[in-house]
Amino acid sequence: MLKREVNDDPDATNRRQQAARERAAREREQRIAAALAQLPRVEKVKKAQGKPAESARVSTTDAEAAVMKMADGGFWPALNAQLATDTASQVIVGVELTNSGSDLGQLVPMVEQLRERYKQTPQEMLVDGGFAKREAIEKLATSTTVYAPVQQPKNSTRDPHEPLPTDSEAVAAWRQRMGTEEAKTIYKERAATAECVNAIARNRGLQRFSVRGLDKARSVLLWYALVHNLMRMVELAPGLVGGLS
Rank of each mutant, 00 (worst) to 15 (best):
Q120A: 13
T121L: 02
T121K: 04
P122F: 09
P122V: 07
P122E: 11
Q123T: 15
E124Q: 15
M125T: 15
M125L: 15
M125N: 08
M125I: 15
L126M: 06
L126S: 11
D128A: 08
D128I: 12
G130V: 09
G130Y: 04
G130I: 07
G130N: 08
F131D: 02
F131T: 02
F131K: 07
A132K: 05
K133R: 08
E135N: 06
A136H: 11
A136T: 00
E138T: 02
E138D: 15
K139V: 02
L140H: 01
A141C: 01
A141I: 01
A141Y: 09
T142L: 11
T142P: 08
S143W: 07
S143A: 11
T144F: 03
T145E: 13
A148M: 08
Q152T: 11
Q152S: 06
P153G: 06
N155F: 02
T157F: 02
R158Y: 08
D159R: 03
D159E: 02
P160L: 00
P160G: 04
H161Q: 05
H161W: 06
E162L: 14
E162P: 04
P163Y: 10
L164H: 12
P165I: 07
T166P: 06
D167V: 00
S168L: 05
S168W: 05
E169T: 10
E169L: 09
A170G: 00
V171C: 10
A172R: 05
A173T: 05
A173E: 08
W174A: 04
W174M: 07
W174P: 05
R177Q: 14
M178T: 04
M178L: 07
G179Y: 12
G179A: 01
T180A: 01
E181Y: 05
E182P: 05
E182Y: 14
A183G: 04
K184Q: 14
T185A: 15
T185L: 12
T185F: 00
T185I: 09
